[in-house]
Structure formats: C-alpha cells, structure tokens
Design a protein around this nucleic acid. Structure first.
Length: 561
RNA sequence: GGCCGGUUAGUCAAACGGUUAAGACGCCGCCCUCUCACGGCGGAGAUAGGAGUUCGAUUCUCCUACUGGUCACCA
C-alpha cells in the first residue's frame, strides 16, 4: 500500500465503494441532441429572492426549450443556516410562477418533499457517502490531504469566521496565514494522521492545488463571454470537519453525476470558477457550460447601486404576493430583463404564452439591473386588462383572503355587483388598464362597496346650491333602463337648461359665457356616486351599482348639501 | 488591499467600426373625451472622463474615475 492509499483508508475507513461504482448508478442521460440539462440549486434559508426566481426561470426555459431536463437540488450542506419548511415553501413559490422541475426534490400531492427521478438523492445532506467516495479517491491519488484540528481549535475557527462575515479583513495577513497552513499540512504522513485521529481530532480535507496563481487561464462564460481568470493556487476545503462537502466539491460531484450541461448561477461565483475547473480536472469530469447571471440591484439614496438585500422592497417574492402582482406579470417582467427583445416579441404576439418566446442566451445582459416597479406595473396592467371580469373577481378575492380579510368579506357580500364593476371597460380593443396589482385594484374599486364608500374628493370649489340643482333635476329624469346615449342626452339637457355648455370646443373658446361645462355637471354626479373626481364611464357605473344603490347615494349626497 | 466583472437618458435597453445614437417604462404637452383610463400625436432626456489605433470609435486598445462581486469548515 502506498502512503496515499494508507492515508485514504485512515481517513475514510467506512467508504468501500469506488468512484466507478457510483458512476455506474448515474448513467448518461438519453436525450435528444442539443438538449440542455439545468438545475436550480438553492439552499433552504427560508427566503425566496427575486434573483433566485430569475435564475430558475432561465434554467427552466433553457431545459424545456431544448427538450432537456430541469431539476431541483437542495443545497443543504450548512446545517447552521437551514430553516425548517423552507424547501417546501420555495417549491410552492416556484410553482406559483409556473416553474416546475421535472426531476429532483419536488412536492408530492400532500405538499411534502419527495424525490423524483433516477439521479438522486437530490438533497445534498443525503449524499455524504457519495462525496466521500470521491474524496477518498482524491486522497488515494495524492490530490487532497487532511488538516487536523482539535475541537477547541475548530470552535475558534468557526467563531472567527462568524466574526469576519461582515468586517473587512487584513487581507495580506489572511493570505499569508492560509499559505502557511497549506505548506505546514501538505506533507502530512499517514503516521501523523493516525496520531491525530487517535487523539480524537477532526479534519477538513483540502485539495492539493497544482496551480500557479501567477498564471491566467482562459475561461468562457456564456453570458460574460471570454474571460481570463487567475489559476487557482489555493488548497481550498473540500470536506468540512463534519464530513459534509463545501459548495465547491458538491457542485463538481453533483453536477457531474446528475448530468448537468448548463450551470446557471449568480456572478458572485465567478471568482471561484478556477477552483471548480480544477476540481473537475482532478476528478476527471467534463465541466459543464457556465452562465453567470448579473445581479438584481437596488438604488441607494446616494445613487449607488447595491445588491438587493432581504429588507428591500421587491427583493423577496413575498413582496410581490403581498402587493398582489399576478405571477404571470412577474414572469413577463423578468423575461423583459432577461432578453431585451422580449417586449418586441410580446407586442407581435400578444396572446401567445411566454413559453413560445425563443429565449436566447446571447441576448442576456451581463450587467446588473434594478427592479423597476413602474415597468412591472405597466406590464401587469396589461396582463390584468386581458382577464375576464370573473377572473379578476376570483383572483382579487384570493388575494384579499390572504391579505385583506375585511375586503374579502365585502367582495363576497355581493359577487354579481363586483363582477359587474370589473366588467366596466373590460374587453374590446382598448381595455382599461386601471390597476397592476390587487392592492391597487382594491383602491380602485373600493368606493363601489358600501362598506368603503366615502366622499374622498368633495366638491369644495362649487356652490352647493348649483350642485343641488343638478342632482335634483337628474333624479327627476333618472331611469335605470336608459341606455348610454339616452342617459347622456339627459345629462346634456340638464346641463344646457341650467346654462352649462355641452360643446367642449365652444366652452374652451369662451368659458366666461357659460356657468360651466357638462364636465362640471358630470363631476357633481360622479362625486355623489363614487366620492371621487375620476371614475370609469358614469352610465356604466350606475348600471353596476344598481338602481337602489344609485338612488341611495344620490339622495344621501343631496341630504348633506 | 489583490483579483474579476460592469458603465449608452431616471429605469430596462438597441445599434457588422460609418445611424439625425432605436424602442419600452416613467415624466411633460396636445388630440380624443362627461372625468379617469385606453388610444393617437409630439417633447425633454444618454454613449463616465482622457489618450491612442482609424478616413471615421458607443463599438477596438490603454489609462483614470465610479460601481458591483470575491478573497469562510456560507452558499
């Protein structure tokens, strides 16, 4: 037995399989030419970031557009950060946005986590032996070595890490220290290892890098293009002292075994790409293609762009749900960020599902973008404008049930009136676009519900007796059976008989010649009926309110004058 | 601090090295109009700065500035 083989047995006595045994369980996928295999691989921290959905959408599109496979893997290698129930919540969120993995960790009919597919297990916490099998092989080949520490030293190291999380370090001395640790431990012998093991010490496994940090290597990223990165010369950690791999090692082993062809991840991974490439080489794996996506950012008060942090509005998908943006609106919006020609395609194909869009890696932008609620809102107004009144009612109700119980109650009190309200100006070539999210929808329609009706914008600049005169006259001729033309004729009649102008141009030419215009007359009715100065077509509003409520509001307003 | 990205209007962005430097959102104005919305028309608004290569640079090269990321037994 060589020294390396002795070391391997010493460190991993429990591992009896060889890498080839494992490989045999992960046969190459049989897929059509050009099919892409992608994965979304979040760690279950309980927060679904918009950047994650952005990446997952890329994964999903690339796979399904090419006839490939999109799978979901849970990267739960850091027990300290794990939040229970987070994976389930994540899957549910993805499902809402129509992002459904073919394989991997999925939800079963009861909403419980379940592995689907032949390339599992798909939770890294269940794959320890697999990683260790490959780790053992690396030790056997002299490509990795252990670094031992006592429990106290370990605790110290972890504490130091925690402390360093948000502080700037003295980089020069940190680098020196790392280098020293490497050099001191690289030459460890099986005897020394045995001694440490017998003393109850634990070890991390470090790669034995053959790289020269002074040299550069050319790498290709499908989004960023051709890059030159420094060759990795750091003996980075493969296995932590609990035997669980770091991201780097898990990435290489899993994406190889699971047959990933395209790795989509945030650009924060770019600096560690040389590590990964080195690992793939050591393990004899062919590396996947990489797509390092730009960050979703926010604007700071001083004008700087910063990575969206958890507390920023729009960072978490829960924000979009709480505001009530339809999931398809959010997808549409993300697609406009992903591919610059998406909007053009959309206007040419207004009714096609977004899955028909020929998504292109080449058109992805390499620079970070800001979340733009104006843009999202505009897109969403268009999405909602295409819904039927019934659909608007159902979805608004679903939102209200989750976020605004009193409003849900109001909606349920009179469903047919609510649907009638949503039907105003809906359909046809030029549908109204009054709201982009359900929260806005509530603001827009709440005045029609008796429980919410108040005079928000009173007619302060008018003489109450003028208003009274108009309303009384209108009540005298009001007939709920009138169609829109007849109705408006009556309004004009009232207007002109009281000295208001009914011809816009004439009024504009000489406003002093009239008491006001028919717009003023309408404003009286509008405020009486809706409490506001702006509303959809008044005749339609009265229809939707119904005769009883119309009269109640008109009379109620009159009584207050 | 080292390394690696990025930088075209407020935002998202398009431009084989040759364009009056697209378009969308937002903003403003006009038209339509019972108000709003929709729609139509129009307007303001950009190549970070400096060198170089070139007949010609948003585009290629270098420098500077700014900005993001990274340098954990986190992912």
């Amino acid at each position: 037995m060589t020294q390396n083989e002795q070391m391997a047995e010493l460190l991993f006595p429990q591992i009896h399989e060889l890498p080839s045994d494992v490989e045999a369980r992960y046969p190459a996928r049989t897929l059509p030419e050009g099919a892409k295999v992608t994965r979304f691989a979040p760690s279950p921290t309980g927060f679904v970031h918009i950047g994650g959905v952005y990446q997952a959408l890329i994964d999903e599109r690339l796979a399904h557009q090419s006839g490939g496979v999109f799978y979901l893997r849970i990267e739960d290698t850091d027990a300290r950060r794990e939040v229970s129930g987070a994976a389930e919540a994540l899957l549910r969120t993805l499902d809402v946005y129509g992002i459904r993995p073919d394989e991997g960790v999925t939800l079963d009919a009861d909403g419980n986590l379940a592995d689907r597919g032949k390339y599992g297990p798909y939770r890294q916490s269940e794959r320890a032996e697999i990683y260790q099998t490959f780790a053992k092989q690396l030790v056997r080949e002299g490509k990795a070595y252990p670094v031992f520490s006592s429990p106290e030293e370990l605790e110290q190291a972890l504490a130091a890490d925690k402390k360093n999380e948000n502080k700037t370090k003295d980089w020069a001395s940190t680098a020196e220290e790392t280098r020293r640790t490497m050099l001191e431990n690289r030459t460890i012998t099986p005897e020394q290892a045995k001694q440490a093991l017998d003393a109850g010490k634990s070890f991390v496994l470090r790669i034995l890098s053959d790289g020269d940090g002074e040299k550069k290597q050319k790498v290709t990223d499908l989004i960023k293009g051709d890059l030159e990165l420094p060759v990795n010369d750091e003996d980075f950690i493969l296995l932590k002292s609990d035997g669980i791999p770091t991201y780097h090692f898990a990435h290489a082993v899993d994406d190889h075994l699971m047959g990933t062809t395209h790795v989509v991840r945030g650009e924060e991974w770019l600096p560690s790409l040389p590590k990964h490439l080195q690992l793939f080489r050591y393990l004899g794996f062919r590396p996947p293609k990489y797509l390092h996506t730009a960050q979703v950012l926010r604007r700071e008060e001083n004008g700087a762009k910063k990575k969206l942090s958890k507390r920023d509005l729009g960072a978490g998908m829960a924000d979009y749900a709480a505001l009530g943006y339809p999931s398809e609106s959010v997808c549409e919006y993300l697609l406009t960020l992903l591919n610059s020609n998406y909007e053009e395609w959309r206007s040419a194909n207004p009714d096609a599902p977004y899955t028909d869009f020929p998504f292109s890696i080449k058109k992805m932008s390499g620079s970070g973008c800001l979340v733009d609620f104006d843009k999202l809102n505009d897109i969403s107004c268009g999405v909602i404008a295409k819904m039927t009144a019934e659909e608007v009612y159902e979805r608004l109700l679903a939102w209200a049930d989750a976020y605004d119980a009193p409003f849900a109650e109001a909606l349920r009190a009179d469903p047919s009136r609510a649907v009638a309200l949503f039907a105003i100006g809906r359909g046809g070539k030029k549908p109204r676009k009054d709201f982009g999210c359900w929260k806005q929808a509530k603001e827009f329609v709440k005045c029609f519900f008796p429980a919410y009706f108040t005079i928000e914008e009173p007619l302060t600049e008018y003489d109450p007796s003028d208003v009274k005169e108009v309303l009384e006259r209108f009540l005298a001729v009001y007939d709920p059976a009138d169609d829109a033309d007849v109705w408006f004729e009556k309004v004009k009649q009232i207007a002109s008989s009281l000295g208001y102008c009914t011809d816009r141009k004439a009024y504009k030419a000489d406003p002093g010649a009239y008491r006001g215009s028919v717009a003023d007359v309408s404003a009286f009715l509008r405020v009486a009926l809706t409490g506001r100065r702006n509303s959809p077509d008044l005749h339609a509003v009265m229809r939707a309110l119904g005769q009883e409520e119309t009269l109640r509001r008109l009379n109620g307003f009159l009584a207050q004058l």
